[in-house]
Each structure stands twice: as C-alpha cells, then as structure tokens.
Simulated scan of single mutants.
Amino acid sequence: MTVPAALPDLGAYRRFVVAFSGGKDSLAALLHLLSLGVPTHAIELHHHDVDGHGPTFMDWPCTPAYVRAIADHFGIALYVSWREGGFAHELARDDAPTAPIVFETPTGIGRAGGNGPAGTRGLFPQTSSDLRMRWCSPALKIDVLAAAIRNQSRFLDGHTLVITGERAEESPSRARYATLEPHRTSTLARAVDHWRPVHKWTERLIWDAIAQARIRPHPAYVLGWGRLSCRACIFGSPDQ
C-alpha cells in the first residue's frame, strides 16, 4: 500500500486525534496510523454524535456501539462530543443562538459556546460544497471537534496531529484539500496539524486495508449503503 508523499514526522507529535465516524474512510485512516507504528496510548478517537446524545434522528442507531467496539478492540481512548439537541435542534432553530457544544475529556465533561447571536435556521442542509450552506458538517462535526480542542488546556502541552478520512476521489472539492496543513485550532501557543492520510487512496485501497486487518465494517455497508455519513449527509450533500 502506498504511503502519501506528505507524511508528517510522526515522532514530533505527543497525541494523535482521529475524527472517527465509524465509516470506512476514518477506519482506514486509523488502521494506517497503527500500521505506521503509532502506539495506541498516543491515539484518541473523537466521535461526533450528530443527534446530540439524544434520540436517533439522522444517524444510524448502531453507530455509537460500533464506534465503542472499535475503540475497545484496539484499546484506544474514545471521547464523544456533540452539540446540544443535535441535528433536530439546529434544524428547527428559531431566533435563538446555535446550541452549546458538549465534549468528553479525560477528567469529565466540558462545555463551550451557546452564547452567540440569535438566528433562525429552518432549512435542511443544502447540496453544496459551501460550508455556509452545507451546515451539517461544520455545525455538528467540524466546529464540535475544534471546540473540544480549543477548550482543553492539555492541547497546549506538546504537538497534536488531527487525522481525518477525506479522500480526493469523493468529489472535486475534496480533491483540492491539502494532505497536510495546520489545523484550524493551531495557534502560537497550541501546535495542531491536520493530516488526511487516505486522501490519495482509492475506495479499493480502503476496503483492502479493512479486509487485511480483519475488521468487520459498520453494518450500514453490509446493508448495501455506499457510505456511512449520517442520513442527512447521504441524501443532502455530494461532498460528505
């Protein structure tokens, strides 16, 4: 299997944060990280619950258990984060601020946000590569991880590498993503890089890595779905 050219100096990082949906691409990114010799004690799986840790609305009901099973199998720490009320609350937001973000930490539960300007959503996520229109990913995933990193002092200690599973093959906009770049949370005081290790991989390479590791994929794939992203993303956006 070909290693991407933009391979970071893995020895320079104290911790490796894998944004883990339970889907095939984030799973392959995790497996690749392990194949490169990164110790499990240095890896954290961060799962963003798009339904807000409440009743199932848009995610697969089995996803939390699947994500937990993968973390337990490898002996890797798992932290779950969510925006209060999740997808349903943001969809119905009417003259109210975007809800606060809640995130698990090694010592308890953290909270951030919820004090922004009032606004009204009332729209389903649009089919667009513009994150202002395709709000599901930023509001319920990207911003959630960023808040969890920005609001924990432990990320000020040593370098952090954030790993996500976007692939160039998925869409023209994703093809333009950098394989390695500073993460949106990186500052002079907080050193955080963003690596997309499977960015140049084909879907065939993704499935080969999972088969080689003898890992059972998420049940959605067994049912014939081509991708795992929450059902709003499957139906509402070509870039999820």
Rank of each mutant, 00 (worst) to 15 (best):
Met58Thr: 12
Asp59Tyr: 00
Asp59Thr: 05
Asp59Asn: 13
Trp60Ile: 00
Cys62Val: 06
Cys62Phe: 03
Cys62Glu: 14
Pro64Asp: 03
Pro64Asn: 04
Tyr66Leu: 05
Val67Asn: 07
Val67Tyr: 08
Ile70Gly: 02
Ile70Glu: 07
Ala71Tyr: 11
Asp72Lys: 13
His73Arg: 15
His73Trp: 01
His73Phe: 08
Gly75Val: 02
Leu78Arg: 04
Tyr79Trp: 14
Val80Arg: 15
Val80Asp: 15
Val80Ala: 14
Val80Phe: 09
Val80Lys: 12
Ser81Lys: 11
Ser81Cys: 12
Ser81Val: 07
Arg83Ala: 11
Gly86Glu: 06
Phe87Lys: 01
Leu91Ser: 04
Arg93Ala: 05
Asp95Lys: 15
Ala96Met: 12
Pro97His: 11
Pro100Met: 10
Pro100His: 14
Ile101Gly: 08
Phe103Thr: 00
Glu104Tyr: 13
Glu104Trp: 14
Glu104Asp: 15
Thr105Met: 10
Thr105Phe: 08
Gly108Leu: 08
Gly108Arg: 08
Ile109Phe: 12
Gly110Phe: 01
Arg111Val: 02
Arg111Phe: 12
Ala112Arg: 04
Gly113Ser: 03
Gly113Pro: 09
Gly113Gln: 01
Gly114Phe: 10
Gly114Arg: 07
Gly114Glu: 04
Pro117Asn: 03
Pro117Thr: 07
Gly119Arg: 13
Gly119His: 12
Gly119Glu: 08
Thr120Cys: 02
Gly122Ile: 03
Leu123Ile: 12
Phe124Cys: 00
Pro125Asn: 09
Pro125Gln: 09
Ser128Val: 05
Ser129Gly: 11
Leu131Thr: 08
Arg132Asn: 14
Arg132Gly: 09
Met133Phe: 06
Arg134Asp: 12
Arg134Pro: 00
Cys136Gly: 09
Ser137Trp: 05
Ser137Leu: 02
Pro138Asn: 02
Pro138Gly: 01
Pro138Met: 02
Leu140Lys: 11
Lys141Gly: 04
Ile142Gln: 13
Val144Gly: 06
Val144His: 13
Ala147His: 14
Asn151Arg: 13
Asn151Lys: 09
Gln152Val: 07
Gln152Lys: 10
Ser153Val: 12
Arg154Glu: 15
Arg154Ile: 14
Asp157Gly: 01
Gly158Glu: 11
Gly158Val: 10
His159Phe: 11
Leu161Arg: 02
Val162Ile: 13
Thr164Leu: 05
Thr164Arg: 01
Arg167Gly: 01
Glu170Cys: 09
Ser171Gly: 10
Pro172Ser: 03
Ala175Arg: 14
Arg176Asn: 06
Ala178Gly: 06
Ala178Val: 00
Thr179Asp: 07
Thr179Phe: 01
Thr179Tyr: 01
Leu180Arg: 03
Leu180Phe: 10
His183Cys: 05
His183Glu: 03
Arg184Trp: 00
Arg184His: 07
Arg184Lys: 13
Thr185Asn: 05
Thr185Met: 04
Ser186Cys: 10
Ser186Lys: 06
Thr187His: 09
Leu188Gly: 15
Ala189Ser: 10
Arg190Glu: 06
Ala191Ser: 11
Asp193Trp: 11
His194Ser: 02
His194Glu: 08
Trp195Tyr: 09
